[in-house]
Amino acid sequence: MTLKYAWFPGCWVAYRMPYVEKSDRLVMERFGIEIEEMKGATCCPEAQFMEAVDRRAWLTLAARNISIAEGMGRDILTPCPGCYETLKMARGILKEDEEMAGIVGEALKKIGVVYRGTSDTTHLAGVLYDKVGIEAIRKAIVRPLTGLRVAVHYGCHLLRPSKYLDFDDPTSPRKLDELVEATGAVSVNYMRKTMCCGGPAGVVDREIGIKILREKLYWIKKAKVDAIVVACPSCYMHMDGNQPYVEEMFEEKYSIPVLWYTELLNWAMGVDPKDLKFYHRVRIDPLLEKLGLT
C-alpha cells in the first residue's frame, strides 16, 4: 500500500517550527507515506482572521489551495489542525451551500482557477491512525516509554465543528490517545480534556489567553502527568511558550513539558531526542533522564 499525498505544511510549521516538520517527516518516511510539495499555495487561510473578516475570501483562497492538490491528483496531508480545519470545512461548505458555492465559483473564475472539490484533506495523525494503523506503529517501537504518564490535548481544530470535520468523535476522541499509548506511555484522563488551550484568544488579548491556559494546566497538574502531548502548532506554542507567564500571573508552579506527538513516537522508535532539535521552553531534560534517554 502506498500512501501518496500533496503536502501542505502550513506557514507556522514551515516558517516557525521546522523541528515539527522534521519530526513528522521522519515518521512519514518510516511508514512509507509519500509526500509531494504543493506549489503556489497561499495561507490556508487561518479561520481566526480570514473567516472572521470575510468568509467569501476565506473559502475562495481555501478552494484555490485545494485545486492545486486536485491538479496533482492527490488528497492533501497537513501537520496543522488549523489548515486541516480550513481546507476540510471549505470543501464541506462548498458542497452543501449552493449560494456560497456560486459566489466562490465566480471569484475563482476571475482568477482562472478550476475547483472540482475532488481532493480531501487529512491531518497526519489521522493518516497514522486510520491508514498506517496502531498495530504497525506498535511493531515499530524499539524503545517503549514504559512508565510515562501523559495528558493528551486534542485542541479544537481536529474535532470541531464536527458537522464538517471527521478526525474523531468530538466529545470523546480516542485516536491521539491510542497513538500515544502505542509507545508504551499511559494517557491519563483529566478534566477539561477537550477544552481550548486559549491560544487564539491570547492572540487578541494576552491576559485572557493566559487565564484560559491556567485552567487547562490546573487540571492537567491534578492528573499527575509527566508531560502534555499535542498535535497542533498553535497549542504547542501557547502551552509550552506561555507556561512561565501562567506561573508568574498566578504564582503557581507547573513546569509540565509539552511534547509534539510524533516527537514521542520518534523517541519510542529509536530516534535520539537530540537529533530532533525541538525547541522547548519548559525543560525536558528531567523527563529524558527519567526515561533513560539522555
Binding site: 514551515a14 499555495a41 495561507c43
Partner: peptide, 30 residues
C-alpha cells in the same frame, strides 16, 4: 501570502534540520 511572520533566514534554519527550502506562498493570488 501567509499569516506567520516571514523570515529571510528560514531556509538556512530549515537546512540545519535537513529540510528542503520553505514553500513560497503566492501573495499575488491572495
Amino acid at each position: 501570502g501567509m499569516s506567520a511572520p516571514y523570515s529571510k533566514l528560514i531556509d538556512k534554519r530549515r537546512a540545519r534540520y535537513g529540510l528542503p527550502p520553505a514553500p513560497v506562498f503566492d501573495a499575488e493570488a491572495a
